[in-house]
Amino acid sequence: MTSTTALRSLRVQIKDAVAEVELIGPGKGNAMGPDFWKELPEVFEALSEDETVRAVLLYGSNGHFSYGLDLAGMAPVFAPMLSAGGMDARKREGFRRQIKDLQDAVSSVSRCAKPVIAAVDGWCIGGAIDVISAADIRIASPAAKFSVREVKVAIVADLGSLQRLPAIIGEGPTRHLALTGEDFDAGRAYRLGLVTELADDVVGRGRELAAAVAANPPLVVQGVKQVMNRGQEPAVQAGLDYVQLWNSAFLASHDFNEAATAFAERRPAVFTGN
């Protein structure tokens, strides 16, 4: 596996058949920048192959899971297409491939042969929802706060939440959250079924759950995950493929530029549908 000392966005520790993967930044609120998107699939693919690992616990540092996509850090991903006004087909195709790479990074959590438990404290926004949606078990602290925020920045969420959340919380709640972009607290997340438990010491409880999973027959545990994923994966992948095309065609917009400018200027965005 990639040496923990070589990682910048994640810290990995393995003990008693449980791997702990901690989001550590380097951006504020563990925002997901280029390092994260490179390292996440490397780590989860390695853990999937590691026969000493039976379960994975995923959580954030410094009181938050993650603020989501690091817009400033990921600007180079968007810049080439936006600079061409969305009119350069080659750049649009390159952008589609970049979206696919980010999707594949999130899907590495779902593909991991070992069950993944996400323990959420503090904020879990946008791309962070995509990541926890790919986990097998989600728990939260009472202080956790969530948002499927992409609509607020003129983006159709494209990394898996629109594909995976309906099977977790239902289509109606998914549409509600994705269309409003509103914040919601841990109590609502629990009532919706996004998380299955609330715990004051959410990482401690996550460790207990991971240990319980790791104590079960490993091939049977992996089989449960594979069988349950089998029925969902074709529909999830079809949705991911479609949103690649949608965003490569429509993301370069006046509204997206307005969202980015308003974010930088710390003011409300005014969208025109252009």
Rank of each mutant, 00 (worst) to 15 (best):
A269S: 14
F44N: 13
A143T: 06
L40I: 14
K152V: 13
D136P: 15
L219D: 15
L240W: 01
I99Y: 08
A84E: 14
A264H: 03
P115D: 08
L47W: 06
V213S: 08
G85V: 06
A113M: 04
R138H: 10
C112I: 09
M1S: 09
V221C: 09
F44P: 12
Y67R: 00
A259S: 04
L219K: 02
L209R: 04
Y67D: 03
S110G: 05
G29V: 10
Q13F: 13
V106T: 03
S141D: 11
Q226R: 07
A6S: 15
S83T: 12
V243W: 04
S3Q: 13
V151P: 12
S141P: 11
D70I: 03
V56M: 05
R96Q: 01
G73C: 01
D88L: 07
P218D: 06
T196W: 06
Y59F: 05
F65M: 01
D158E: 12
R164W: 03
A79V: 05
S108E: 10
S141R: 08
K91Q: 01
G187A: 15
L192W: 01
R191I: 12
E208S: 09
I24D: 11
S3H: 11
V195R: 05
G204C: 00
A214N: 10
S83I: 02
E208Q: 12
F78I: 14
D185Y: 13
E42K: 08
